[in-house]
């Protein structure tokens, strides 16, 4: 196991990550259609206070506001040329908000385009973009990097490689989004859990797993499948259930207590890094922290 991660897990047993970023940004004033990452430059106090909020809620690790910070993704907002300063600022904002009370992981999400031969973008261009992003996040002070919400394993592998180069000996976490099929869990591009675990590990990932797309119950099934095919620490960040509509408003049904109730199952499945994705809030993290502390006190971690 990666030495940095091994030390952390020796102390903490299970690392609690943060919850959703996008909804917090909207609550703080992100406008529809605006690139979330631009706030790192225009209003750095927002990502800084979100990081602080999650640390206050009990997170051991928070993510930077850089999910869409690869040059190709930023290009959709005309910001490709500002990739480096945006990611550096994203790291700095989170580091300032955490203020030594936890870890900061740089978030790297999909580039938003399909890679050749299925799409129109050259894998070499995607790799170069992730290199720029990863290097800037590291220069900005992140402790580790999280490749997340990937649905194309080939793209995830490129991001892991770029992260590995930028980080040296520090840990790379890699997380895909899966959908249920009658034949098991698959990404949109048709990658199954075994292929994901194998290729991500070969590319240099230190922890593997899944985020987004499923509530906690679905994620438990994904985690159990990962446990069958890898010895790496597992990372799981579930949505607060699947969105439902109530009086015209989208609502994620899993309450903090619902998510917390599933936590022991995830821990028993060998998940070492647990956080939340869409629909989760600091309240969810508070509830997860409570259960984790109880498990730890009872020596069940």
């Amino acid at each position: 196991m990666n030495a940095q991660l091994e030390n952390l897990l020796a102390k903490k047993k299970v690392l609690l990550a943060d919850g959703a970023m996008g909804t917090r940004l909207q609550a703080a004033g992100l406008k529809p259609g605006e690139a979330p990452e631009i706030l790192n430059l225009t209003r750095p106090e927002i990502p800084r206070s979100i990081a602080a909020e999650y640390i206050d809620a009990g997170s051991d690790l928070v993510h930077t506001n850089s999910f869409g910070g690869s040059p190709l993704k930023l290009a959709a907002h005309g910001l490709a040329g500002r990739c480096e300063e945006i990611n550096r600022a994203a790291a700095a904002a989170a580091v300032n908000g955490v203020a030594g009370r936890g870890l900061v992981s740089g978030s790297i999400g999909p580039c938003g385009r399909l890679l050749k031969p299925y799409g129109d973008v050259d894998p070499a261009e995607v790799l170069d973009g992730f290199r720029i992003q990863a290097a800037a996040l590291v220069a900005g002070g992140v402790d580790l990097l999280t490749i997340e919400t990937m649905t194309d394993l080939a793209e995830a592998v490129l991001a892991v490689k770029a992260a590995r180069e930028a980080l040296g000996h520090r840990a790379v976490l890699a997380s895909l989004t899966f959908d249920p099929t009658p034949r098991g869990w698959f990404t949109i591009m048709g990658n199954d859990v075994a292929a994901a675990a194998g290729e991500l590990a070969a590319a240099g990932a230190d922890a593997v797993g899944s985020n987004c797309g499923q509530g906690t119950e679905g994620m438990l099934s994904v985690a159990l499948d990962f446990g069958q095919v890898t010895d790496l620490p597992l990372l799981i960040q579930a949505n607060a259930g699947l969105p439902v509509l109530e009086a015209g408003e989208v609502h994620y049904p899993e309450t903090p207590a619902d998510m917390a109730a599933h936590l022991p199952d995830l821990v028993n499945a060998g998940v070492k890094i647990i956080g939340g994705c869409c629909g989760t809030s600091p309240d969810h993290i508070v509830a997860l922290r409570g259960i984790l502390d109880q498990l730890k006190a009872a020596d069940k971690l």
Partner: peptide, 12 residues
């Protein structure tokens, strides 16, 4: 529809 193939197959 029946998950025998995935997006790459459809795109090709």
């Amino acid at each position: 529809r029946t998950h025998q193939v995935f997006l790459p197959h459809v795109l090709l």
